[in-house]
Amino acid sequence: MDYDKLLTLSSDLGYHLLLSGAEIYRVEESVHYLLTAYGVETGEVFVIPNCVIVSLTAPGQKPITRVRRVPGHGTDISRMEALNDLCRRLCACPPDLDRAGEELDGVIREVHRTPMAVELAAYVLLTSAFCLLFGGTARDAFCGGVCGLAVGLVVPFLARLGTNLFFKAMVGGFFCGLLAAGLTDLGVGEHIDLIITGAIMAQAPGLVITNFMRDIMAGDMMSGLVKLAEALLTGAGIALGTGVALSLVSALWGVL
């Protein structure tokens, strides 16, 4: 058997699973099952949120290792389910490695792009729903929706430019703060704090901080600490952005 190909296949599977937003333990287990299914008992896999390392020792050969760095990414559950399905099929009856590689390529090449308009509608829907959930009025929900629209326009655009996490959060927070303060001053919104907390929920790292706790408790210390740093950084970015916007608006309002 060509162990190089097996290493490439398994590390690519791990990389794409992580890229689609799978949990750390799921990536590690999937790669491990795949290696075992192909008869490699000496495979090791180590995953943290931005790196996948797979290593194996073929009988009578030197150990081989592959490292894949994972860039910042979103979540794509339908791709993750497809990859999970593929991994299960490969483990149930392992085909030869070229076939398996082709099947993996097939799953990766299926790109689902949500239309821009639908994505924006989703941002508006979720931010206004959060404004209502936090106890805002219908007018607050409207303002929250406007802020959500701005976030939905700006943040994916910045992501396409390859902007880092902190800056994205800051710019998103800035627009939320600016619009919320502006609309409240114009008399459209009623509770500025509820509008802002609702509007930032599209970006807020609530899931990250919950997953950080889960990882730490499950024993994945490294992943947990990476996620904690991410959550604190994103939170600080959003707070900084809104803070700048609010002070800017109040200064301008004083002048006008």
């Binding site: 339908s78 949500t114 994505e119 209502l132």
Partner: peptide, 17 residues
């Protein structure tokens, strides 16, 4: 209902159909 709607928005962003 609001929680339902908020989740629905995230389903679109996370590509659950």
């Amino acid at each position: 209902l609001y929680a339902f709607l908020a989740c629905l928005g995230f389903c679109v962003l996370f590509r659950i159909n």
